[in-house]
């Protein structure tokens, strides 16, 4: 078939020379390369002891952020749940009662907020959807492997960031 464009280039295919046909040069070359690597510095990062550097925007384990005063930012608008393509987020919204201002920033808050980590595909759409900067995918934590399927439903007890570390990301 004649070329369709003027950019085509035949791949180089030389006839094998006699030396190449005798297998040996290529084999020697290959052995040379592998021997070179034998003495090279190893690329391995020994995982449990050392961890590989992850980028700051790595989409890891979810966290529900608190604001500067330690109140939960989530206002249970439900955008994250809508945005989730895996339908992994479930929440029940509740009205904030008087005297709970230090706990929840807005009048509405999530009474239960569950992420099913086994369903979650860590696509980051919930983080993107959140208008209150409440849910984040942390770069420094990964969802760990577990034995039972039920353990993967992360409730607020595991999602909300602990009180002490309140600096914003």
């Amino acid at each position: 078939m004649e070329p369709l464009s003027n950019r085509s280039k035949k791949v180089q295919k030389r006839e094998m020379t006699f030396a190449e046909r005798a297998y040996l040069p290529a084999i020697a070359q290959g052995l040379g390369i592998t021997l070179k690597h034998f003495f090279k510095k190893k690329a391995t990062v020994q995982y449990p002891e050392q961890t590989r550097e992850r980028s700051d925007i790595w989409r890891g384990l979810h966290v529900l952020k608190r604001d500067e005063n330690g109140a939960e930012r989530c206002t249970a608008c439900g955008l994250c749940a809508v945005a989730c393509p895996a339908e992994a987020i479930t929440m029940i919204a509740g009205e904030r009662k008087a005297g709970e201002e230090h706990l929840y920033r807005e009048e509405k808050y999530a009474v239960t907020y569950e992420v099913n980590m086994l369903r979650c595909i860590f696509c980051g759409l919930c983080e993107e959807a959140c208008p209150k900067a409440a849910i984040f995918l942390q770069d420094d934590k990964l969802a760990p492997a577990r034995y039972e399927r039920d353990e993967f439903i992360y409730g607020k007890d595991r999602l909300v960031e602990p009180l002490k570390t309140t600096e914003t990301k």
Binding site: M16, E20, R21, A22, Y23, P25, A26, I27, Q29, G30, I33
Partner: peptide
């Protein structure tokens, strides 16, 4: 280099 000209 490891493969293209290796006769095998």
């Amino acid at each position: 280099k490891m493969l293209t000209r290796n006769r095998i």
